[in-house]
């Protein structure tokens, strides 16, 4: 299968800060690739390099078979970009914004007007097209920005946190649109820090401090998590967490309502040790059982691992 995006050792430094540190990325044509990572991980910087907005400090990147250093302008013709921050003209109407960008993408006359109104209708903004963009709600602005990235039928879409701050229905709406675009054969690279959104991607890259600390399909990621996981139902939960954290072999504990999720190198003896320690401290244990990790667990595990590595290095 052909690659829509391919980078080797892609690096970007800002002064002494290395925002992207030797990224090797392959995105297959037609897939939805999710960048997951905390703020400052380097997601935006990577996208801006791939869109030809920022020059890499080192390494190479090819988008749609074109080199980002040499052919940035050619790349721009066949990719759509939705920046993290809303970047359309607030003092133009939704329709005027789309019409302008369609024009700038060199769609001519009839074609331009047709694409603009089609795309507006597609994102559900047809009846709001005469409104000034600055008066639209956050969710509608995001859909308009998506329309703007789609108006010239790009083969690759770069979406930087397209659902940030949106309520669940708006988020669902945007994901429906992304699936629709993917079904048309467009490649989508989308960043997010909502773990449950990553589940929707075919491939996930966990980014941390400018590099991937995990890469693969959601199923792969879960299967390959290098730690065991116990779910503990105990009361009081805060005290149980404190006990678990002190136990040898435990690498991390997260609290979810009335239950704990306890990460460890291995669970072989841990279960008993944990049970004993909890009871000894007067914690009422209802159940302790080994469970399959969710993506969120994988994310927690990976970030913790990366932080430990950094601490040691």
């Amino acid at each position: 299968m052909s690659l829509a995006i391919e980078t080797a050792n892609l690096t970007r430094r800002f002064g002494t800060v290395t925002a992207v540190a030797g990224l090797n990325l392959s995105v297959r044509t037609g897939e939805i690739f999710g960048f997951l990572g905390p703020n400052g991980a380097g997601k935006t910087t990577t996208i801006r390099m791939l869109c030809g907005l920022l020059l890499p400090s080192e390494g190479t990147a090819r988008v749609a078979g074109l080199d980002v250093r040499r052919d940035a302008e050619a790349i721009k013709r066949c990719v759509g970009y939705m920046p993290q921050r809303f970047s359309l003209y607030g003092d133009l109407t939704a329709e005027e914004n789309l019409d302008f960008f369609a024009g700038v993408y060199r769609l001519s006359g009839q074609e331009r007007r047709r694409r603009a109104s089609e795309t507006l209708a597609r994102v559900g903004l047809a009846d709001r097209r005469r409104e000034l963009t600055e008066h639209l709600s956050g969710g509608l602005k995001q859909r308009l920005a998506l329309a703007c990235a789609l108006v010239h039928s790009p083969s690759i879409l770069f979406l930087d946190e397209p659902t940030a701050g949106a309520d669940p229905p708006s988020r669902q709406r945007i994901w429906d649109l992304l699936y629709e675009a993917a079904a048309e054969g467009r490649t989508i690279l989308v960043t997010t820090h909502y773990v449950e959104e990553a589940e929707r991607c075919q491939t996930i890259g966990f980014m941390h401090r400018g590099r991937f600390i995990g890469l693969g399909s959601p199923e792969q990621c879960k299967a390959e998590m290098g730690e065991a996981l116990l779910e503990v139902d105990a009361l009081p939960v805060m005290q149980a967490a404190a006990v678990a954290r002190r136990l040898d072999g435990v690498t991390g504990v997260s609290i979810y309502g009335h239950t704990l999720r306890v990460f460890a190198k291995t669970t072989t003896h841990l279960r008993h040790h944990l049970q004993e320690a909890l009871v000894a401290q007067g914690v009422a244990v209802k159940s302790i059982r080994a469970v399959a990790p969710t993506l969120e667990d994988v994310f927690m595990s990976l970030t913790r691992g990366a932080q430990d590595d950094n601490g040691r290095g």
Binding site: C51, L53, K76, Y81, P83, S87, L88, V104, R106, C148
Partner: peptide
């Protein structure tokens, strides 16, 4: 808005 504009050809 310049960001969006610069991403176009």
């Amino acid at each position: 808005t310049l960001d969006q504009l610069m991403a176009t050809p």
